[in-house]
Amino acid sequence: MEEPVDTATAILASAAVLLRERTFDDISYRALADEVGISERTIYRQYPTRAHLIAALSNWIEQAFFPLPPFVTVSDFRAAVHERFRAFDASPAYAYVGARASAISPTLDIEPAYITRAIEAMLDVAAPTLNRRDRRRLAASLRYFSSAMFWARLRTGFDMDAGEICDAFDRAVGDVLAKLLDATWAER
Protein backbone atom coordinates (compact mmCIF):
# COMPACT_ATOMS: atom_id res chain seq x y z
CA MET A 1 0.00 0.00 0.00
CA GLU A 2 1.32 3.40 -0.85
CA GLU A 3 1.71 5.82 1.99
CA PRO A 4 -0.65 8.78 1.84
CA VAL A 5 1.32 11.90 0.97
CA ASP A 6 0.61 15.19 2.69
CA THR A 7 0.28 18.40 0.69
CA ALA A 8 3.64 19.82 1.76
CA THR A 9 5.43 16.69 0.55
CA ALA A 10 3.38 16.44 -2.63
CA ILE A 11 4.50 19.97 -3.51
CA LEU A 12 8.15 19.04 -3.03
CA ALA A 13 7.82 15.85 -5.05
CA SER A 14 6.26 17.80 -7.92
CA ALA A 15 8.95 20.47 -7.71
CA ALA A 16 11.55 17.73 -8.02
CA VAL A 17 9.81 16.43 -11.15
CA LEU A 18 9.80 19.92 -12.68
CA LEU A 19 13.49 20.32 -11.85
CA ARG A 20 14.27 17.66 -14.45
CA GLU A 21 13.29 20.03 -17.23
CA ARG A 22 13.90 23.53 -15.88
CA THR A 23 15.92 25.39 -13.27
CA PHE A 24 14.54 26.23 -9.85
CA ASP A 25 14.16 29.89 -10.88
CA ASP A 26 11.94 28.87 -13.76
CA ILE A 27 9.53 26.93 -11.57
CA SER A 28 6.73 29.38 -10.79
CA TYR A 29 4.24 28.79 -7.99
CA ARG A 30 1.59 28.81 -10.72
CA ALA A 31 3.23 25.94 -12.64
CA LEU A 32 3.86 24.07 -9.42
CA ALA A 33 0.21 24.42 -8.39
CA ASP A 34 -0.91 23.03 -11.76
CA GLU A 35 1.50 20.12 -11.47
CA VAL A 36 0.23 19.16 -7.99
CA GLY A 37 -3.38 19.95 -8.83
CA ILE A 38 -3.92 22.43 -5.99
CA SER A 39 -4.33 26.18 -5.77
CA GLU A 40 -1.40 28.55 -5.88
CA ARG A 41 -2.58 29.88 -2.56
CA THR A 42 -2.12 26.50 -0.89
CA ILE A 43 1.52 26.56 -1.94
CA TYR A 44 2.00 30.03 -0.49
CA ARG A 45 0.47 28.79 2.76
CA GLN A 46 3.04 25.97 2.95
CA TYR A 47 6.00 27.93 1.57
CA PRO A 48 5.50 31.68 2.02
CA THR A 49 8.68 32.56 0.08
CA ARG A 50 10.90 30.85 -2.48
CA ALA A 51 13.58 30.67 0.20
CA HIS A 52 11.26 28.50 2.30
CA LEU A 53 10.53 26.36 -0.73
CA ILE A 54 14.13 25.75 -1.70
CA ALA A 55 15.14 24.98 1.89
CA ALA A 56 12.39 22.36 2.22
CA LEU A 57 13.01 21.02 -1.28
CA SER A 58 16.69 20.58 -0.55
CA ASN A 59 15.96 18.60 2.63
CA TRP A 60 13.52 16.39 0.80
CA ILE A 61 15.88 15.76 -2.12
CA GLU A 62 18.69 15.01 0.30
CA GLN A 63 16.65 12.29 1.99
CA ALA A 64 15.20 10.88 -1.20
CA PHE A 65 18.27 10.94 -3.46
CA PHE A 66 21.43 11.59 -1.47
CA PRO A 67 21.21 9.62 1.77
CA LEU A 68 24.53 9.83 3.55
CA PRO A 69 26.12 6.41 4.10
CA PRO A 70 26.94 6.02 7.81
CA PHE A 71 30.60 6.41 8.79
CA VAL A 72 32.65 6.04 11.93
CA THR A 73 36.27 6.09 10.78
CA VAL A 74 38.03 8.65 8.61
CA SER A 75 38.34 6.18 5.75
CA ASP A 76 34.61 5.43 5.92
CA PHE A 77 34.02 9.17 5.87
CA ARG A 78 36.06 9.55 2.70
CA ALA A 79 34.20 6.69 1.06
CA ALA A 80 30.82 8.13 2.07
CA VAL A 81 31.69 11.52 0.61
CA HIS A 82 32.95 9.95 -2.62
CA GLU A 83 29.65 8.15 -2.97
CA ARG A 84 27.79 11.42 -2.50
CA PHE A 85 29.88 13.31 -5.04
CA ARG A 86 29.20 10.55 -7.56
CA ALA A 87 25.49 10.73 -6.76
CA PHE A 88 25.62 14.52 -7.25
CA ASP A 89 27.25 14.01 -10.65
CA ALA A 90 24.44 11.64 -11.63
CA SER A 91 21.72 14.19 -10.68
CA PRO A 92 23.34 17.63 -10.99
CA ALA A 93 20.09 19.60 -11.01
CA TYR A 94 19.22 18.16 -7.60
CA ALA A 95 22.69 18.67 -6.22
CA TYR A 96 22.70 22.35 -7.21
CA VAL A 97 19.48 22.83 -5.26
CA GLY A 98 21.28 21.46 -2.22
CA ALA A 99 24.28 23.73 -2.76
CA ARG A 100 22.04 26.73 -3.21
CA ALA A 101 19.86 25.98 -0.21
CA SER A 102 22.93 25.70 1.99
CA ALA A 103 24.00 29.22 0.95
CA ILE A 104 20.80 31.16 1.48
CA SER A 105 20.01 33.27 4.47
CA PRO A 106 18.26 30.81 6.81
CA THR A 107 14.46 31.13 6.90
CA LEU A 108 14.04 29.12 10.09
CA ASP A 109 16.17 28.13 13.01
CA ILE A 110 18.56 25.82 11.31
CA GLU A 111 19.80 22.66 12.89
CA PRO A 112 23.29 21.69 11.78
CA ALA A 113 23.13 19.10 9.03
CA TYR A 114 23.41 15.42 9.93
CA ILE A 115 26.83 15.21 8.27
CA THR A 116 28.13 17.94 10.61
CA ARG A 117 27.15 15.92 13.68
CA ALA A 118 28.56 12.76 12.15
CA ILE A 119 31.92 14.44 11.52
CA GLU A 120 32.04 15.72 15.07
CA ALA A 121 31.20 12.27 16.43
CA MET A 122 33.90 10.73 14.23
CA LEU A 123 36.52 13.11 15.63
CA ASP A 124 35.40 12.44 19.20
CA VAL A 125 36.29 8.80 18.67
CA ALA A 126 39.33 9.21 16.41
CA ALA A 127 41.02 12.01 18.36
CA PRO A 128 39.59 12.04 21.88
CA THR A 129 42.36 14.14 23.42
CA LEU A 130 42.42 16.84 20.76
CA ASN A 131 41.90 20.37 22.12
CA ARG A 132 38.63 22.08 21.42
CA ARG A 133 39.87 24.75 19.00
CA ASP A 134 41.73 22.38 16.73
CA ARG A 135 38.82 19.97 16.83
CA ARG A 136 36.45 22.67 15.60
CA ARG A 137 38.89 23.85 12.97
CA LEU A 138 39.25 20.32 11.71
CA ALA A 139 35.52 19.49 11.85
CA ALA A 140 34.59 22.70 10.03
CA SER A 141 37.23 22.14 7.33
CA LEU A 142 36.17 18.53 6.74
CA ARG A 143 32.55 19.60 6.65
CA TYR A 144 33.21 22.31 4.11
CA PHE A 145 35.30 20.13 1.81
CA SER A 146 32.60 17.44 1.86
CA SER A 147 29.77 19.85 1.02
CA ALA A 148 27.51 20.19 -2.00
CA MET A 149 29.09 23.65 -2.32
CA PHE A 150 32.52 22.06 -2.89
CA TRP A 151 31.09 19.79 -5.57
CA ALA A 152 29.20 22.69 -7.20
CA ARG A 153 32.20 25.03 -7.20
CA LEU A 154 34.55 22.45 -8.67
CA ARG A 155 32.05 21.35 -11.27
CA THR A 156 31.03 24.81 -12.46
CA GLY A 157 34.21 26.77 -11.79
CA PHE A 158 36.75 24.09 -12.72
CA ASP A 159 34.84 21.73 -15.05
CA MET A 160 35.76 18.77 -12.87
CA ASP A 161 33.91 15.47 -12.92
CA ALA A 162 33.15 13.37 -9.83
CA GLY A 163 36.45 11.49 -10.04
CA GLU A 164 38.49 14.68 -10.12
CA ILE A 165 36.39 16.22 -7.37
CA CYS A 166 36.95 13.13 -5.19
CA ASP A 167 40.69 13.46 -5.81
CA ALA A 168 40.72 17.15 -4.84
CA PHE A 169 38.64 16.29 -1.78
CA ASP A 170 41.06 13.54 -0.71
CA ARG A 171 44.03 15.87 -1.01
CA ALA A 172 42.32 18.63 0.96
CA VAL A 173 41.30 16.17 3.69
CA GLY A 174 44.87 14.85 3.79
CA ASP A 175 46.18 18.41 4.13
CA VAL A 176 44.01 19.35 7.10
CA LEU A 177 44.52 16.00 8.87
CA ALA A 178 48.27 16.44 8.48
CA LYS A 179 48.04 19.60 10.61
CA LEU A 180 47.64 17.41 13.67
CA LEU A 181 50.37 15.45 15.38
CA ASP A 182 50.47 11.71 14.80
CA ALA A 183 49.99 11.09 18.53
CA THR A 184 46.59 12.79 18.31
CA TRP A 185 45.02 9.79 16.68
CA ALA A 186 43.57 6.93 18.61
CA GLU A 187 44.01 3.45 17.08
CA ARG A 188 44.02 3.75 13.36
Binding site: S102, A139, R143, M149
Partner: peptide
Protein backbone atom coordinates in the same frame (compact mmCIF):
# COMPACT_ATOMS: atom_id res chain seq x y z
CA UNK B 1 42.10 27.65 -1.89
CA UNK B 2 39.44 28.98 -4.21
CA UNK B 3 36.80 27.17 -2.16
CA UNK B 4 38.13 28.56 1.11
CA UNK B 5 38.51 32.07 -0.32
CA UNK B 6 34.78 32.42 -0.86
CA UNK B 7 31.75 33.56 1.04
CA UNK B 8 30.53 29.96 1.18
CA UNK B 9 33.11 29.43 3.91
CA UNK B 10 31.63 32.16 6.05
CA UNK B 11 28.08 30.87 5.49
CA UNK B 12 28.95 27.25 6.30
CA UNK B 13 31.07 27.90 9.39
CA UNK B 14 28.44 30.21 10.80
CA UNK B 15 25.46 28.07 10.01
CA UNK B 16 26.82 24.63 10.77
CA UNK B 17 29.10 25.47 13.68
Amino acid sequence: LSHLDSVGTWVTFRREF
